[in-house]
Write a protein that binds this DNA or RNA. Structure first.
Length: 291
DNA sequence: TCGCCCCGCTTGTTGTAGGA
DNA sequence: TCCTACAACAAGCGGGGCGA
């Protein structure tokens, strides 16, 4: 399985697409597209994969995903149970860089927006205050027509461009294969890893996904990502462990096993080396933060 | 009981050489 | 140029045990 290219066609009378989605769960597919994607989560929670970032998502989150950046919104397991009664709702806007004609972003007044779009190559998540402002503006955009719709969208971009409290998601090291000689093997590896990190993955197995032997695979993976495969896998697992610690009410050993680690000592060690503190300290820190 | 550390064994990564 | 094979080294893993 590799990241799927999703193609959209704007209606002839619109320069960008806005939608309000309501499904039992989001499209559970690792994909990318040439449009920027602005998403506000109205309802539902789960795990958000953007480039090589893996983080929990919940209602109230606002994310801007850059063009060609692979991503996937994976709802929690209960969303996939029949008759769960749960729904995943979001407002989205898909737009291309030249949505208002070529050259618009080059004028001086648009520099902050241009810079924000540049930053979105790694995926951006905005603070709650900005998210709330943007949500209302996105609704207005969706409900408006013609010229007013375009003006509201520009106002929305202006709000986002002036937000100082944002976080970049994917690392600069993440390179989508479409940018590098069209080698889709790395894409297959990302996809395989995101779908299987909760269980034991052997080097032989993942090398097989890329149609290489383990030695060649190690070299190939490092060439593209500037990190070795086990480090990449551990980062995904620790990201998922953080989500479980904050959301699930599981104890630390359960979180370790649920995140794909077979051994608690290794889980503790990896957690500390990546996050800088032990799992228990992380939990205490965030529980105190909630009170 | 849980979280963490230590130690020995296993597995993965890297450097080098050579073949297609 | 890309891939494989091999050997040496590094990192990861699992079991056991200790302290709070």
């Amino acid at each position: 399985m590799k990241a799927k290219l999703l193609e959209r066609r704007s209606p002839f009378d619109k320069s960008f697409i806005s939608d309000v989605h309501s499904y039992p769960h989001f499209l559970n597919v690792w994909h990318y597209h040439p449009e920027f994607e602005l998403v506000y989560i109205i309802q539902s929670k789960g795990t958000r994969f953007i480039g090589d970032s893996i983080k929990p998502f919940q209602e109230g989150d606002l994310v801007l995903i850059g063009e060609e950046l692979p991503h996937m919104w994976q709802n929690d397991p209960e969303y996939f149970q029949k008759e769960s009664g749960l729904t995943a709702e979001a407002i989205t806007i898909h737009f291309r860089k030249d949505f208002a004609g070529s050259g618009l972003l080059d004028i001086p007044e648009m520099i902050p927006i241009q810079q924000m779009l540049e930053r979105s190559k790694q995926g951006l998540v905005f603070d709650r205050e900005t998210a709330l402002l943007a949500k209302n503006k996105m609704k207005e955009v969706h409900e408006s027509e013609a010229f007013a719709r375009l003006m509201l969208f520009l106002e929305l971009l202006y709000i986002l461009a002036n937000c100082k409290n944002f976080q970049q998601l994917s690392t600069k090291g993440f390179v989508h294969p479409s940018e590098k000689n069209g080698d889709l093997r790395i894409d297959k590896v990302y996809s395989f890893t995101y779908n299987n990190f909760r269980r034991n993955i052997t080097l032989d197995e993942v090398a097989d996904v890329a149609n290489l032997n383990p030695t060649a695979f190690c070299r190939f993976f490092k060439k593209y990502t500037k990190k070795n495969y086990s480090k990449f896998l551990n980062e995904i697992r620790i990201g998922y462990a953080c989500k479980l610690l904050l959301e699930e009410g599981l104890n630390i050993s359960e979180v370790g096993y649920e995140s794909g680690f077979n051994n608690l000592s290794n889980f503790n060690r990896q957690f500390k080396s990546l996050i800088g503190i032990s799992p228990s300290q992380y939990l205490n820190k965030h529980q105190r933060g909630k009170k």
